[in-house]
Computed example of a mutant assay.
Amino acid sequence: MAITILADSACDLSEHYYNEYSIEMIPLTVHLESKDYRDSVDIKPKTIYDAMREGQTPKTSQASANQFKEIFTSYAEAGKPLLYIAFSSELSGTCQAAKMVEQEIKEKYPEAKLHIIDSKCASLGLGLVVLEAAKMAQKDISFDEIIQQTAKNAAQMEHIFTVDNLEYLYRGGRVSKTAAFVGGLLNIKPLLHVDGGKLIPLEKIRGTKKVLKRMIEVMEKRGSNFQNQTIGISHGDDLPRAQELSRMIQDTFHVKEENIIIEMVGSVIGAHSGPGTLALFFYNK
Rank of each mutant, 00 (worst) to 15 (best):
I3S: 05
T4Y: 14
I5M: 12
D8P: 15
A10D: 15
D12C: 10
L13C: 12
I23Y: 03
M25A: 12
I26V: 15
P27C: 12
P27D: 04
E33V: 06
E33H: 11
E33Q: 13
E33L: 14
S34Y: 13
Y37A: 02
D39Q: 10
V41G: 05
V41F: 14
D42N: 12
P45R: 01
K46E: 15
D50A: 13
A51L: 10
E54Q: 14
K59P: 09
T60H: 07
Q62T: 12
K69Q: 15
E70H: 14
A76N: 07
K80R: 12
K80G: 11
P81D: 08
P81N: 09
Y84Q: 04
I85C: 05
F87R: 09
S89H: 12
E90G: 07
L91M: 13
G93R: 13
T94Y: 10
C95N: 11
C95L: 03
Q96K: 13
A97C: 12
Q103H: 13
Q103G: 11
E107V: 08
I116Q: 02
I117C: 05
I117K: 03
D118N: 10
K120D: 04
A122W: 01
L128S: 03
L128G: 00
L128F: 05
V130I: 13
A134Y: 01
I141Q: 06
I141L: 10
I141Y: 03
D144R: 07
D144C: 07
E145G: 01
K152W: 05
N153P: 06
A154V: 09
H159W: 06
T162N: 08
V163D: 04
V163S: 04
D164R: 03
L169E: 11
Y170D: 01
G172W: 03
V175P: 03
G183K: 00
G183N: 01
L185A: 14
L191V: 11
V194M: 15
G197N: 04
G197Y: 07
I205E: 05
R206V: 10
G207P: 04
V211G: 00
K213M: 09
E217H: 12
V218S: 14
E220I: 09
K221N: 09
K221Q: 15
R222L: 09
Q227R: 13
N228V: 13
T230P: 07
T230R: 10
I233K: 12
H235C: 02
R241M: 13
R241G: 06
L245Y: 05
Q250H: 05
H254W: 03
V265M: 04
I269M: 08
A271K: 03
H272V: 00
G276N: 00
L280D: 02
L280K: 00
